[in-house]
Design a protein around this nucleic acid. Structure first.
Lengths: 274, 274
DNA sequence: CGGTTCCTTGAGAGAACTCAACGTCGGTGG
DNA sequence: CCACCGACGTTGAGTTCTCTCAAGGAACCG
């Protein structure tokens, strides 16, 4: 399987160096010792393509026999109840792990589909399990990811107003997209890897890859409410919304609003303790 | 600190056999190979007492340097935002791990207090980390616990009616308390360890250790709403509520209500194919 | 260009909240 | 022993936030 140094074309299962991956900075293997990283790489089925929005990675209830890491794009996880109501559980950006909620479960508790054209890397449960027995660094990183996701889920599960939730969501997306690059689809991978940390700069631009409907569903709001809240924010001069691209003018005001949610602080100073 | 002979004296830090622990059936070490269990036991500070309701185990923002397993009683975790609003994040029953959401975090994201007199076992983060490097069974159990908690948090975070949430909560409590025994406080430990699986039997009795206020807060409802929903359930003949003790007469009806929440099924049968 | 799908705005409805009052229980102290 | 107090639980009435229903406009795709 050929592989171009720069980045190039995509074939599932390619053996690649994680070092060159556009998502490396956010990936759970970032910071692992070289030996663990190389073992990880060789257990990996890399560059699995989800060529277009709506492509399914796996369905709810399917046997849960792999875990995925987003390489590019955006994947949403969701459930559907007996009445056919969809419920968005989360959005996964480059570097994020998908399937952390399926450990010890026979089946995926939620399905996963691409929000925009995306790429993921795949590790089977079996391989992951054996990796975990003798790669303590990897194990710890995985654990921290799961723990972080749990913190997020618990924080978001609170009872907040539409405005609080929206503000928290926007800031959270901003934080997550900033270090890697604006969330581009896999088609734009070329640009991703060479874009330096964008978004963290002066004016905060977010390109939201998902629809209002998905945002609303994720935040437990009606689509219309999301629109109205965005309009209200815009009237206050806090942001400028152009289709899916948002420009945050007054992040401070948003922070203040989102504070009770507790997921996005201006600068979370976590000085370590014993 | 007086304590009954059956299960010997309680002094924090006692070296004890996990086999005799009343919570053993639900504990994360249940099913581990003997060698891992014994290493776990010796890393453990067992029987840490929280003598009365309201006693704090740790506070929000405190350096997160240990993980706990509930031995008896009930512990609630909670956060307090800047406006002083309390937010209950979860109730932890015997066998449950507290602190899974603090991995990779310097500080506890939530505080923990006893709901009724309780006992916990303590393992320091450092010890746990070294245990995890060479006890793959333990590691896996921990991972599965974190994953399960994540699934629960995601399921509960949905947008449901007061009745759906209440039904899901009651059934979930019933399921969790049944195998171990009705949630008794540490003072009743005597009875716990020798009571065979209660509650699973014909008529389902639950003793809810926490106040209506805590339940409401946990479910993102007003205290009054919880009362009203319980009253409605009672009017329908689905349960009989006597103070903190509930008798579920029509679990089927409750199951039907709680179905969309997706956390408590009569018997989860998701046979699905790839 | 039609035909979707998505986004946006308006008007009315409903579920849950807030405010308020009252009953109950358990502990405390006179 | 009983009166008192505070916390908890329950019930009622009015308010509010968000949802639902409805419709028009914009963007995307074949």
């Amino acid at each position: 399987m050929p592989f171009d140094a720069q980045l190039s074309p995509v074939a599932a299962g390619i053996r690649t160096s994680c070092q060159l991956c556009p998502a490396h900075g956010n990936c759970l293997v970032n910071g692992l010792p070289a030996n663990e990283l190389s073992r990880w790489s060789s257990a990996l089925l890399a560059h699995v393509p989800l060529t277009q929005a709506g492509k399914s990675l796996f369905a709810t209830g399917e046997p849960a026999n792999a875990v995925f890491v987003v390489r590019a794009g955006c994947i949403k996880t969701y459930t559907v109840d007996e009445d056919g109501n969809e419920r968005v559980r989360g959005f996964h950006l480059p570097g994020d792990v998908i399937g952390l909620d399926s450990f010890g479960a026979a089946h995926y508790p939620a399905g996963a589909v691409a929000v925009v054209p995306s790429q993921v890397c795949r590790v089977s449960k079996g391989q992951l399990q054996s990796l975990m027995t003798d790669n303590s660094g990897l194990t710890q990183h995985l654990f921290e990811r799961a723990s972080r996701e749990l913190r997020l889920a618990l924080a978001l599960s609170g009872d907040y107003t539409a405005e609080q939730r929206m503000a928290a969501f926007l800031l959270h997306m901003l934080e997550r997209m900033a270090p890697a690059a604006p969330c581009a689809s896999a088609g734009d991978v070329r640009s991703i890897s060479f874009t330096p940390a964008a978004g963290r700069s002066a004016d905060s631009l977010i390109k939201l890859p998902m629809t209002r409907r998905d945002i609303a569903n994720y935040l437990r709001l009606a689509t219309e409410t999301v629109c109205r809240v965005l309009t209200r924010f815009e009237e206050k001069g806090w942001l400028k919304s152009t289709d899916k691209t948002l420009r945050l003018n007054a992040p401070v005001a948003l922070w203040a609003l989102a504070e009770p949610v507790g997921i996005s602080q201006p600068r979370l100073s976590l000085s370590r303790a014993a």
